[in-house]
């Protein structure tokens, strides 16, 4: 098991190094001068030169890369050109919204999807299965911002249970914070839950046809017991893969939902940085997101080994 973790950790480190090359090269090496790109077409040559100096663009490729990496390792992500504050500060502020939102949505989606998928699988071909498959089909097809608008209309405008948007900050209290994130989390979770429920269903159906389920039944387990005690854990393996992928998406891909609910999240930060050509922010935030995605993959790999003993010895 330890060997397995070590090897996974090594591959995590390697992926990060390769990702950093790609990101750095994309932004620094691709044709055009970053400083003039950031300043736009009508910039004065001396402004461009000043920015070049500020960004340290006059050094060699290698020194700039090492400077960038070294800075990030010591917590210095550079200074945003548009906001004139440290990128680390900007990111920290935004992560406080995006990370809880992503986790919230992920937990909701898993809590909905696993039982729903189980019900559909155990009633295969029945009315419940039919209804769930129809609902999840709809959930996959309908864009999440439409759900978001619907939720706002019903729960914020009609029922007035939640505010229509904005984030009060965690200083306003844990409850207020989570309350503000609830509608966005639901809007994010519904399409994800629909996909996950369908995968849960098909994975469980496949597992229920395995020989060891027949053995369990011949032992005297009821169908429900056999499902819970033998099928579930085996069926969760493909579901875990999807959960990992979904988390990565939720972390940065919530941009539309953040816009609908006026949430100061990472998605909006990167979107604004791109429109304002703030390459310092783009570079660092993308690297951070890559790190998060690779870390989640690593955690999913470790979970695989916890679920499936056959993986523990192999590496």
């Amino acid at each position: 098991m330890l060997r397995y973790i070590l090897i996974r950790a090594l591959s995590l480190g390697l992926s990060l190094v390769v990702a950093s090359w790609v990101i750095f090269a994309m932004i620094e090496v691709v044709p055009g001068d970053p400083a003039s790109f950031m300043l736009g077409l009508n910039a004065q040559p001396d402004t461009v030169a000043a920015l070049r100096a500020e960004l340290g663009l006059n050094g060699s490729f290698l020194t700039r890369y090492l400077g960038w990496i070294g800075g990030m390792l010591s917590g210095d992500f550079g200074t945003s050109y548009t906001y004139r504050v440290a990128v680390s500060e900007l990111v920290l502020e935004r992560v406080q919204v995006s990370l809880p939102l992503a986790l919230y949505a992920l937990i909701l989606s898993t809590l909905i999807a696993v039982p729903v998928g189980m019900i559909a699988a155990s009633r295969r071909g029945g009315m419940a299965d039919f209804g769930i498959m129809g609902a999840t089909q709809l959930g996959v097809a309908v864009p999440n911002f439409w759900f978001a608008m619907l939720l706002v209309l019903v729960f914020a405008i009609q029922l007035r249970w939640f505010s229509a948007g904005g984030f009060p900050g965690w200083d306003a209290g844990l409850f207020a914070g989570f309350k503000a994130l609830t509608l966005p989390a639901i809007a994010l979770a519904l399409p994800q839950a629909s996909i996950l429920a369908r995968i849960m269903r098909s994975s469980l159906l496949e597992t229920l046809h395995q020989d060891y389920i027949r053995t369990a039944r011949a032992k005297g387990l009821s169908m429900g017991q056999a499902t819970r005690r033998h099928a579930l854990r085996n069926a969760l393996i493909p579901v875990l893969t999807i959960i990992g992928l979904q988390f990565s998406f939720l972390l940065a891909g919530a941009i539309i939902i953040e816009n609908v609910f006026f949430l100061p999240g990472l998605g909006r930060l990167i979107f604004q940085a791109i429109t304002q050509r703030d390459l310092v922010v783009v570079e660092s935030v993308v690297m951070l997101l890559v790190f998060a995605v690779i870390l989640v993959t690593f955690l999913v790999d470790i979970t695989y080994a916890l679920v499936d003993p056959r993986l523990r010895r192999r590496a």
Binding site: D211, Y212, T215, K219, N234, P309
Partner: peptide
């Protein structure tokens, strides 16, 4: 499993791997 039990052809897949 109590008064009547059964074993099957494929021992490789008849047991839960986890």
């Amino acid at each position: 499993g109590n008064r009547m039990s059964m074993i099957f052809q494929e021992p490789m897949s008849a047991l839960n791997p986890v």
